[in-house]
Design a protein around this nucleic acid. Structure first.
Lengths: 220, 220
DNA sequence: TATTGCTTGTTCTCAAATTCACAAACACGG
DNA sequence: CCGTGTTTGTGAATTTGAGAACAAGCAATA
């Protein structure tokens, strides 16, 4: 019987946000309980997998009934460490950086963008109205910003060539995790978790399954 | 001995774009051959895994020497179905849609954005200079656009509520694969491969590993 | 042509993840 | 209070993936 002290498998961790998202949606529509079958449908996975995943957090369901939406939401949030907002700083104010800054999807889900930096002095001073008028600052200010604003997450939106120096700056400034959109492997200390999102890579993976068209559906 | 007719494992497919990226970079810097160790380093994976992955495409290396960069690039491209450009249409011209349209990273890697559509008539007519002046059209034109321009990929950048109707429109219009940024599970025919990228989900996964700080590094 | 050194391709073993299948447990109605 | 129907939680079996280890094979050199 897995208890909260036990390890949560990586594969499960990657799915917890899906459940969280589905639970928030259920709460919004007024549902008070949910079965593993329903939750599986909303998250796009298999019901047995949902039950096994949730069992790693503890025994929070009621047999014959299902899971309490609000209670389970809290447990999933707690496991993911989603207690309160985590401030984000974006490094790089090119097209992608501007895009991410204006995109509201971060703040909506508890990750407000509180600062933007760039190495180009001509970009410093620009205000982004979509993020409450955050003003672009110079990358040299990074350490000061992270400390004073308590920034937890750094997002790298620089060109590939500058990504490593951006990472170094973020690590030096003291952020606790990094999300990179640059298509390069970064050298980052083991103590700081980081992930890479590469949009072109996603399209190339699709390309493969499209070429094999019909024969195989993409794995969820 | 795996041959090109055999199945390529899903896990391998997800890494092929990384190798492709690394190979392109090697070619750019003038390297003509590369070892599995070097390629592994550039892609951020284990060397044994590189060799095993590549062996699914065929026996394209030379023992004692390594892989020919140009030749291997061609083989990886062919396996991924990256023969020539694949046109992309973006559905949704809100913040994220505009962001993606202006972001040059798609075209650079063989996925030019040739059209943008939105359901809001007030947005129709806007030109995006970053993508050679592509003009936003109404979503009702989608089928015509896809047919006339030979669009292969649809990118969904709408709010979550509109994502399913966007997907339906794309499927009806005849696109061959779909990349969605909306945080919902889509109902799409098995014949059309699709993937979901959710930026907030990425941050939430990081949140977990950050909470478990230091004890576990995120799996690549 | 024989030897040496290096790197691939593949086999083998182990670990992780998925899926099935079902007993255990609860609510509810009679 | 008992039986029924439903849904969880979890062993067990299966599939998939990771990594180590090494024989096979090629180039280069003398």
């Amino acid at each position: 019987m897995p208890r909260s002290g036990d390890v949560v498998p990586d594969a499960t961790v990657e799915r917890l946000p899906l459940y969280h998202q589905a639970l928030v949606e259920l709460a919004r529509t007024g549902e008070t309980t949910v079965s593993s079958v329903k939750l599986a449908e909303l998250a796009g996975v298999n019901a047995a997998k949902v039950r096994k995943d949730l069992s790693f957090l503890g025994s929070y369901g009621t047999r014959g009934v299902g899971y309490d939406v609000d209670f389970l939401t809290i447990q999933v949030s707690r496991t993911l460490g989603l207690t309160g907002d985590s401030s984000v700083v974006i490094v790089g104010f090119g097209n992608l950086g501007q895009a991410l800054a204006k995109y509201g999807g971060f703040a909506d889900r508890g990750f407000p963008v509180v600062a933007i930096v760039d190495a180009d002095p001509t970009k410093v001073g620009t205000a982004v109205k979509e993020t409450d008028g955050v003003v672009v600052q110079h990358v040299d200010e990074l350490a000061k910003i992270v400390r004073s604003q308590g920034v937890a997450v750094g997002v790298i939106a620089t060109p590939a060539e500058s990504a490593q120096s951006a990472a170094d700056a973020l690590v030096g400034a003291g952020v606790q995790s990094i999300l990179s959109f640059a298509p390069v492997v970064l050298d980052i200390p083991e103590t700081i978790p980081w992930r890479k999102v590469d949009l072109a890579t996603e399209l190339q993976i699709l390309s493969f399954y499209q070429a094999r068209s019909g024969s195989l559906q993409h794995p969820a």
